[in-house]
Nucleic acid binder design. Structure first.
Lengths: 221, 221, 221, 221
DNA sequence: AATGAATGAGAGTTCATTCAT
DNA sequence: TATGAATGAACTCTCATTCAT
């Protein structure tokens, strides 16, 4: 594989300010996401990305110091999208149902662009050294977003905010990825079930009592 | 040069019958799962697997015709574990709460062995040629298992069995994987939240009415 | 891992159009022929070829998809050379003796470049998948060439054209290869004996009578 | 490939005196010749030979110190056969035509056992270090045999004995190998053409005059 | 003696990355 | 600035050979 990491692998070699540069980097990122989804990590070669983007391999390295920085950038873009969805879903000025629908619709929309790429991106793929910073930063941001959403939509108080947010995040992402794998992202039934999933989970009665022994009774509402 | 004899890339070159051989192949599979979780697909080299298993690279290839067949075998083992959990959770002779607890506990247990390996295994990693068969077969089996579980634990009827089962499967796996990533698999709070997730989702009122327009009302219990 | 894309294993990955590329591929082919003659098939490693050609192993694979395609290319070049000699030797506008001398001199010249490589090339060395096509095509072309030559230089008619051409082809190649092995390719005595071989063989009286019983008499002139 | 040569690679580890051992070594040699002809040098692996011979790889190494010694033994057997044919063809007590027929028939017979193996064996395949001795010894013996045959069947004197013998040897072997490749070894026409080839070549008028300038005239009888 | 699992050097091939043009 | 030929470290896989049983 090689994966030599000579440079500080910083985000980008040069910020693309010109319109042309911007178009090139976007094309590269799109190509990377596309190939990632289509052929998986094993099929994601820098040369393949460059070719699919209509650029030369040299140009690719003009914008991204190495392969890891490239996929980090793809990931960052995906995080941005997810973050935007989360912010919308945490907006208390809209009714609860709308917020949940916005969350579900947003997640579906986000994953509709490169259906298969995201799971590879999130679940696998090594993180660039820079990512240790950037990725964790965005990961934390996502966590905060989900926690805000969790608190905004949950009725009672709960000391499970951290865990609950992660469970929600994982569950929703998992269900969407699974649907993406089956090519069922656009099914109305999926939408409805996801809403049910999120709605019922967030509606579950919770108390502040720490580690209340779980028993048969607690399962019944 | 060794004229390439494609081999069905199938399961194994030779079935390990002796105790020793069996121990070796198991060690190899464990090593592969371990490395997969520890270093991801990019870090999974056949030599690293052999070394970690305390075997020589030659021995590895005595049992697995190629790298893909190796990870397919790891995947198959994981599928078997998941399947066992599903069967237990679909057992109608135990009370509902027990079934759900068994499902959650089982999934947590299954993912505790190689916390990080499974997401890489399921979400990424190319499928061997043989996998197209074996994997899909197990995938279908899992689907059936989840559908049985869905029907066994859902109160009303629903025409969303297929989608619902997938949503449940994806959500549970996603949440568990996310927790595994955070190293929170053994947290009691996680267990409780997962039970809540599954329980509330399965308890959600469903009707046979096809594509009932989703509105504010349906979100309220 | 790089999902194996079998490639027609065909001629070349990219046709070398530029002068530089052409020089590189030629150097590689020469190096391959050289090593083949010097160290035999067992000594022909792709890395050795690349090094001998003054190129990197990567460059070699830029032009030849695999080792088999490489030796197929070497073979093809040799076939071309042989074909050219055959065409010259079948030219009826020159006197018979000249034609035969041209054949012998041509074959000696062709084998003088890589004295030992050709026998390895023709007698051994697996044929690439593509070769099945290309090689047989050239083989057929050679056969036609030899048959034309046989008919052009034989006095009487014969129903042994096919066999006779092959015998001539094999005999001449065999004698030249044997001489090459002894390093006697440039000996004038060799030239004379080869001419004698070809001349007397082609001059032998032949009749159309099928399978005339061979007896003592037929050996006497 | 490895081809480590640790032992003096002497002929054989132990002379097979017992009948059983003898049968095993013969089976191994036959298997080697068979595979060599069938799959070429690249397909000749020690494990394949052992399996084809119905022996274990361990047994093979009990009789042959390494792969090279194995093929040297195969070669030696072939040389013995050829030598026997040469001796018969040099026997002056039988009429000339019979001698030539014996040569041709013998060579055809020798190559009928493993049609394709011999060319690989003679033309290619590395010589074991021991072979340097054994092979050259047999090679010299063959050369002497062919020279005897050449002198015995040529009418006039000639200073081309050495070259002529080699040309004859190479031509005959080449023609037979070519026929073997085409699967035409048993054709009566082949036999007749080979006899013509040898007969006319040996019958060609030769003088002692050294390097008589070759011209148009010398081609006409 | 015979067996065949195990070994590991080394061969074929890929692909991240550089740099001359 | 853009290109893509060239590079070579690292990877997958084979097979000659050994040795415990």
């Amino acid at each position: 594989m090689a994966t030599r990491i000579p440079l500080p692998s910083g985000a980008m070699r040069k910020e693309p300010r010109q319109a042309r540069s911007r178009a090139t980097t976007d094309a590269i990122l799109d190509a990377a996401a596309h190939i990632l989804g289509e052929r998986g990590w094993a099929g994601l070669t820098t040369n393949a990305v460059a070719e699919a983007a209509g650029a030369s391999i040299g140009s690719l390295y003009q914008y991204f110091p190495n392969k890891l920085a490239l996929i980090d950038a793809v990931r960052r873009r995906h995080f941005d999208d997810v973050l935007a969805v989360l912010h919308a879903a945490a907006n208390l000025e809209t009714p609860r149902a709308s917020r949940i629908a916005a969350l579900v619709d947003g997640m579906i929309a986000v994953h509709s662009r490169h259906p298969a790429a995201h799971r590879v991106l999130l679940e696998e793929s090594p993180r660039g050294d820079d990512s240790r910073g950037v990725h964790d930063l965005f990961g934390a941001e996502c966590k905060r977003g989900y926690e805000a959403l969790f608190m905004a939509n949950t009725s009672g108080m709960s000391d499970h905010v951290g865990i609950g947010a992660r469970v929600l995040a994982g569950a929703l992402a998992g269900a969407v990825h699974e649907a993406a794998r089956q090519g069922a992202l656009s099914s109305p039934a999926l939408r409805q079930e996801l809403i049910t999933l999120v709605d019922t989970y967030l509606s579950a009665p919770r108390t502040e009592a720490k580690s209340r022994p779980f028993g048969e009774k607690s399962l019944r509402r």
